[in-house]
Simulated assay, not measured.
Amino acid sequence: MADVIVIGGGIAGISAAAELARGGADVLVLEMEGQIGYHATGRSAAIFIRNYGNATLRALNAVAEPIFEQPGEISDQPLLSPRGELMVASEEELPILDAYLDGSTGIDRLTGKEAAEIVPILRADRIAGAMIERGARGIDVDRLLQGYARMLRARGGRIVTGAVVTGLSHRAGLWQVKTAQEQHSAPIIINAAGGWADDVSALAGVPRAGLQPYRRSAAIIPTPQGYETEHWPIFGSIAETWYAKPEAGKLMVSPADEDPVEPHDAWADDMVLAEGLHRFEQAVSVSVTRVEHSWAGLRTFAPDRTPVVGFDPRATGFFWLAGQGGYGVQTAPALSRLTAALIAGVAPDVSSEVLAAMEPGRFGLE
């Protein structure tokens, strides 16, 4: 028996488990794959963008940023590296750019010419406006994930991989969690199952939260000949029709697709990828000569695009930690501490408005 069982070994589940173990809880993580961080975590664009997301997510980003900057026990090496984010807009996309800038901090507005001076393959004649967030930084996702896993194990926490949950029931004040191999029990379970979180809730007899996984694809292409890309920022369309990021001497390009899918081990759709690469080519002065590698991951959103975090009002001891969408890695340091605080019954370091925005009962299903 454990104090808390976490279902899901992505960055959300592992970081929350580590913070709970830091507080003295006996924590067990059950991960259905053969390794932690296999799905969304391992396929992240790995960038910290302070102004990314709605007001609730920006509040979480503000809590997470100093933890990334001074990771303490998580890592003895930096988790962030300089990168920057440059977004461009056509004439029709200027309202989207204006909306993004509203309430943002640390962002400079640019002309098309200025944007092309930073990323010289951009076609200045196609840019009506642009912005750069120089403070956006790359995240060492593996170091972050393994650092939390190390913290968890150092405090006696356990991680069981290949543990597909097949049954969930609540009796005598305990959740009984059945896998193909064995059965575990704990008074509290954390549903950190990513794209499978609604399936976990249904297995427990808890109403679904309306979570929808979406596929996001990416491809690695050669660095454009004659250019040094190492110091380029991540760059793309403010309308999220494509983006690109320097990646180990090459370019990662994504069509920024968001196709609703069932939870599965995602792969890139060739047609979607081709369409996205075409949009990229329309915005730059170079051609895509070949794709060296492609993949896809899942981004899972609640209907209002805000994470679902907290105890479910309809099920004793059932805690949601899901719906992080494309923000899961960069919000993990904040949401893990928030989770530990809520479970311990202490005041979290976010406002009551932020808590209310993420409350699992907010969809009128209490």
Score class of each variant (00 low, 15 high):
residue 227 Y to F: 15
residue 220 I to Y: 00
residue 177 V to T: 10
residue 120 P to W: 15
residue 276 G to F: 13
residue 294 S to T: 15
residue 244 A to T: 01
residue 325 G to H: 08
residue 351 S to C: 02
residue 179 T to R: 11
residue 271 M to L: 14
residue 78 P to Y: 10
residue 105 T to R: 14
residue 51 N to C: 13
residue 204 A to E: 11
residue 53 G to V: 06
residue 183 Q to L: 11
residue 240 E to R: 00
residue 187 P to S: 01
residue 111 T to W: 08
residue 366 E to T: 13
residue 129 G to T: 03
residue 283 A to H: 02
residue 301 F to I: 03
residue 154 A to G: 00
residue 265 D to L: 14
residue 3 D to G: 08
residue 192 A to S: 14
residue 95 P to K: 04
residue 66 P to E: 12
residue 214 Y to K: 14
residue 356 A to L: 15
residue 102 D to A: 15
residue 252 M to Q: 13
residue 36 I to K: 08
residue 44 S to A: 15
residue 145 L to S: 02
residue 127 I to M: 05
residue 289 T to M: 11
residue 234 I to M: 15
residue 204 A to K: 08
residue 210 G to R: 03
residue 199 D to C: 11
residue 355 L to Y: 01
residue 330 Q to F: 08
residue 180 A to F: 11
residue 184 H to W: 13
residue 255 P to G: 07
residue 2 A to L: 09
residue 274 A to C: 06
residue 293 H to V: 00
residue 313 P to L: 12
residue 227 Y to S: 12
residue 333 P to W: 07
residue 244 A to N: 01
residue 342 L to S: 06
residue 298 L to C: 12
residue 158 R to F: 00
residue 175 W to M: 09
residue 290 R to I: 05
residue 16 A to D: 04
residue 174 L to N: 04
residue 225 Q to F: 13
residue 305 R to S: 13
residue 240 E to W: 03
residue 168 L to Q: 11
residue 165 V to S: 01
residue 57 L to S: 06
residue 19 E to T: 12
residue 173 G to E: 13
residue 4 V to H: 01
residue 326 G to V: 04
residue 284 V to T: 11
residue 317 G to A: 04
residue 248 A to W: 01
residue 54 N to Y: 07
residue 303 P to A: 13
residue 276 G to T: 02
residue 223 T to P: 10
residue 352 S to M: 03
residue 173 G to W: 05
residue 231 H to M: 08
residue 269 D to A: 06
residue 300 T to E: 01
